[in-house]
Lab assay of single mutants.
Amino acid sequence: LDITFHVDGKNIHVHGASEEVVRIIEELIKNNARAEEIKETLERLLR
């Protein structure tokens, strides 16, 4: 699975993920999660 995301100002662009995963990533970023935390969360979800 190949998910890429980047933050452009306040806009979060996520590619290669389901809508549910996109929402989770957006929440994590809004809550100022570190990249490592986001990665760990995604790995748990995608197991």
Results as ranks from 00 to 15, higher is better:
residue 20 E to Q: 11
residue 5 F to H: 08
residue 25 I to Y: 02
residue 22 V to D: 00
residue 8 D to V: 01
residue 25 I to G: 00
residue 32 N to P: 03
residue 13 H to G: 01
residue 4 T to G: 12
residue 25 I to K: 00
residue 17 A to W: 02
residue 29 I to W: 02
residue 47 R to Y: 04
residue 3 I to F: 15
residue 5 F to M: 13
residue 27 E to N: 14
residue 5 F to T: 06
residue 20 E to N: 07
residue 26 E to V: 12
residue 2 D to A: 02
residue 24 I to R: 10
residue 30 K to Y: 11
residue 27 E to P: 00
residue 1 L to F: 12
residue 21 V to L: 15
residue 22 V to E: 02
residue 42 L to V: 09
residue 7 V to Q: 03
residue 32 N to T: 06
residue 28 L to H: 04
residue 7 V to C: 10
residue 42 L to F: 03
residue 1 L to P: 06
residue 11 N to Q: 14
residue 38 I to T: 02
residue 1 L to V: 15
residue 23 R to G: 07
residue 9 G to K: 00
residue 5 F to P: 04
residue 16 G to N: 14
residue 36 E to C: 07
residue 46 L to H: 09
residue 36 E to Y: 05
residue 37 E to M: 13
residue 16 G to T: 03
residue 17 A to F: 02
residue 34 R to M: 08
residue 39 K to R: 13
residue 34 R to K: 14
residue 14 V to R: 00
residue 31 N to E: 08
residue 6 H to E: 15
residue 35 A to E: 08
residue 45 L to T: 04
residue 26 E to W: 10
residue 24 I to W: 08
residue 3 I to E: 04
residue 7 V to L: 03
residue 43 E to W: 02
residue 37 E to V: 12
residue 45 L to H: 07
residue 28 L to F: 05
residue 11 N to H: 14
residue 10 K to Q: 15
residue 1 L to I: 15
residue 46 L to A: 09
residue 12 I to L: 08
residue 13 H to M: 06
residue 45 L to Q: 04
residue 24 I to C: 02
residue 15 H to P: 04
residue 36 E to F: 06
residue 47 R to L: 11
residue 2 D to S: 04
residue 47 R to I: 15
residue 4 T to S: 15
residue 30 K to D: 06
residue 46 L to K: 05
residue 2 D to W: 03
residue 11 N to M: 15
residue 3 I to A: 06
residue 6 H to S: 09
residue 22 V to S: 02
residue 28 L to A: 08
residue 23 R to S: 09
residue 1 L to S: 09
residue 20 E to R: 07
residue 46 L to E: 06
residue 38 I to H: 01
residue 40 E to L: 12
residue 44 R to E: 11
residue 13 H to C: 05
residue 6 H to R: 04
residue 34 R to W: 06
residue 17 A to C: 03
residue 25 I to H: 00
residue 3 I to R: 05
residue 17 A to E: 01
residue 47 R to W: 02
residue 10 K to Y: 11
residue 31 N to V: 10
residue 24 I to E: 08
residue 31 N to Y: 02
residue 47 R to G: 15
residue 4 T to C: 10
residue 29 I to V: 07
residue 29 I to T: 02
residue 3 I to S: 01
residue 46 L to V: 11
residue 43 E to Y: 03
residue 41 T to I: 14
residue 34 R to C: 07
residue 6 H to Q: 14
residue 4 T to N: 15
residue 47 R to N: 14
residue 26 E to K: 14
residue 22 V to I: 14
residue 40 E to H: 12
residue 26 E to N: 14
residue 6 H to D: 15
residue 15 H to K: 11
residue 23 R to D: 07
residue 17 A to R: 01
residue 30 K to Q: 10
residue 20 E to Y: 06
residue 46 L to Q: 09
residue 45 L to I: 11
residue 15 H to Q: 08
residue 36 E to W: 05
residue 37 E to A: 12
residue 14 V to Q: 00
residue 19 E to L: 13
residue 47 R to D: 13
residue 32 N to K: 12
residue 34 R to Q: 09
residue 7 V to T: 04
residue 43 E to R: 10
residue 2 D to I: 04
residue 17 A to T: 05
residue 7 V to K: 02
residue 12 I to H: 02
residue 22 V to T: 03
residue 7 V to N: 02
residue 1 L to A: 08
residue 26 E to F: 10
residue 40 E to D: 13
residue 15 H to L: 07
residue 11 N to S: 14
residue 27 E to L: 11
residue 35 A to D: 04
residue 32 N to D: 13
residue 2 D to K: 07
residue 3 I to L: 14
residue 13 H to W: 03
residue 22 V to Y: 05
residue 45 L to Y: 05
residue 29 I to C: 04
residue 32 N to R: 10
residue 38 I to P: 00
residue 11 N to L: 14
residue 29 I to Y: 02
residue 29 I to E: 01
residue 27 E to H: 12
residue 8 D to L: 02
residue 47 R to S: 15
residue 25 I to A: 03
residue 16 G to R: 05
residue 8 D to H: 04
residue 40 E to A: 11
residue 31 N to M: 13
residue 12 I to S: 00
residue 37 E to C: 08
residue 1 L to W: 08
residue 12 I to T: 01
residue 33 A to F: 07
residue 4 T to R: 10
residue 32 N to Y: 05
residue 44 R to T: 12
residue 10 K to T: 15
residue 36 E to G: 09
residue 25 I to C: 03
residue 27 E to D: 13
residue 4 T to P: 01
residue 6 H to K: 05
residue 36 E to H: 13
residue 25 I to N: 00
residue 17 A to Q: 01
residue 36 E to K: 10
residue 14 V to F: 04
residue 24 I to H: 10
residue 35 A to Y: 15
residue 14 V to S: 01
residue 2 D to C: 08
residue 18 S to R: 04
residue 13 H to Y: 08
residue 43 E to P: 00
residue 40 E to T: 12
residue 8 D to C: 06
residue 35 A to I: 14
residue 17 A to V: 15
residue 31 N to P: 01
residue 13 H to F: 08
residue 4 T to V: 13
residue 24 I to D: 03
residue 14 V to E: 00
residue 43 E to I: 10
residue 41 T to G: 04
residue 7 V to G: 03
residue 23 R to N: 09
residue 26 E to L: 15
residue 2 D to Q: 03
residue 7 V to Y: 04
residue 39 K to G: 11
residue 13 H to L: 05
residue 39 K to N: 10
residue 40 E to C: 05
residue 40 E to P: 02
residue 22 V to C: 02
residue 44 R to Y: 07
residue 44 R to N: 13
residue 35 A to P: 09
residue 46 L to T: 10
residue 39 K to L: 15
residue 37 E to S: 09
residue 13 H to I: 10
residue 6 H to L: 14
residue 19 E to H: 11
residue 14 V to I: 09
residue 32 N to I: 05
residue 32 N to H: 12
residue 8 D to N: 06
residue 41 T to Q: 11
residue 36 E to M: 10
residue 36 E to S: 10
residue 41 T to M: 14
residue 6 H to T: 14
residue 37 E to Y: 11
residue 13 H to N: 04
residue 44 R to F: 10
residue 4 T to Q: 12
residue 23 R to Q: 13
residue 24 I to Q: 10
residue 36 E to D: 13
residue 31 N to W: 01
residue 40 E to Q: 12
residue 40 E to N: 12
residue 5 F to E: 06
residue 23 R to T: 08
residue 16 G to K: 06
residue 37 E to L: 12
residue 34 R to S: 13
residue 14 V to G: 01
residue 25 I to M: 05
residue 15 H to S: 07
residue 9 G to S: 02
residue 17 A to M: 04
residue 4 T to D: 15
residue 37 E to W: 06
residue 45 L to V: 09
residue 29 I to A: 02
residue 1 L to R: 12
residue 16 G to E: 05
residue 37 E to G: 05
residue 28 L to Q: 06
residue 2 D to M: 04
residue 32 N to Q: 12
residue 40 E to I: 13
residue 14 V to C: 02
residue 46 L to Y: 03
residue 12 I to Q: 01
residue 47 R to Q: 14
residue 8 D to W: 01
residue 33 A to R: 09
residue 32 N to E: 09
residue 2 D to H: 09
residue 13 H to K: 05
residue 43 E to K: 11
residue 2 D to E: 10
residue 3 I to Q: 03
residue 30 K to R: 14
residue 24 I to F: 12
residue 14 V to M: 03
residue 18 S to G: 06
residue 43 E to F: 03
residue 11 N to Y: 14
residue 1 L to Q: 12
residue 5 F to K: 06
residue 42 L to Y: 02
residue 14 V to H: 00
residue 19 E to N: 10
residue 39 K to I: 15
residue 15 H to N: 06
residue 18 S to E: 03
residue 41 T to Y: 12
residue 5 F to S: 06
residue 16 G to D: 08
residue 31 N to Q: 13
